[in-house]
Design a protein around this nucleic acid. Sequence first.
DNA 1: TATTGTTATACTCTATAACTATA
DNA 2: TATAGTTATAGAGTATAACAATA
Lengths: 157, 157
Amino acid sequence: MPADVAATSNPARVAWSCVAALFMSPQNHGRFAQTAAGIGLNPGAMKALMTLHTMGELPMRALGSELHCDASMVTQMVDALEAKGYAERVASPTDRRVKLVRLTKRGVNARHQALDQLSVPPAAITSLPERDQEALARILAKALTLADPPMDPPHTV
Amino acid sequence: MPADVAATSNPARVAWSCVAALFMSPQNHGRFAQTAAGIGLNPGAMKALMTLHTMGELPMRALGSELHCDASMVTQMVDALEAKGYAERVASPTDRRVKLVRLTKRGVNARHQALDQLSVPPAAITSLPERDQEALARILAKALTLADPPMDPPHTV
DNA sequence: TATTGTTATACTCTATAACTATA
DNA sequence: TATAGTTATAGAGTATAACAATA
């Protein structure tokens, strides 16, 4: 790392800009979309798939606020998930206006497949010495727990 | 980090999946698009802006292959850059079919502004102990140099 | 005949507004 | 009257195909 970077930027900024560079590199570009295509979904619907597994059974509208999109988008995403047999709509027992979205067994499997593909590290990471890889894994996993709200490492959920 | 993650996955996978989780989190979601909007571009055009600065004067088609998109997309992206005064087309001295794209001073400034915004780290990173932040920065900067082709930390270019 | 960049066109994804049903 | 979800519609972004200029 050039000396002027360390001098003019704080470590958190340097770290994050490196993360961004790795993530937006041509090598990584399109990975998310390709993974989604691999399970027959578009990126938005795949994100819903991820969120549902983490959150469990969820009203449509709650899913929307979780994903920062409006109700009509949720309808379309859940339509896509249902079409692939990855989720189903269940009537809420307490409010007949509300529909709950629930992942199917098949949806859980698709999610695992996608996650497995997304977590394949780029050469920049695998080329690091083992010791550095371990430090990265340890520190980044810790960072997830410090997020607000705390996140689980994707592998575990 | 739960023990089973360490047991069933190698450190590089864990590290990368954590990076992905941070980058795709709702907190970070839309950052790229918002930054692009801040300099009056859409995400694709902003990516071209980044690439141009790194690569210097470039034929349209070379820019396209760098960005993994076809020629007509390049035309549209460079149109957007020209409209904002961020780049200009220059006739190639050796081949009259070819147009070179060159960033303007204004384009370089816009890029710095965008980069500055993109490198603001999320709370998950800033909440780490200083010592961890420094380790992250050091290791990730090293990882960039190990990429193929090697990358510069965004701050430096 | 092949290649560069452009234009015209269509498709996908996302966002907005009007609608139905329940509360 | 307010809220949940849907449908209809329009917009942005991206990709495909036909085109003119040059090699």
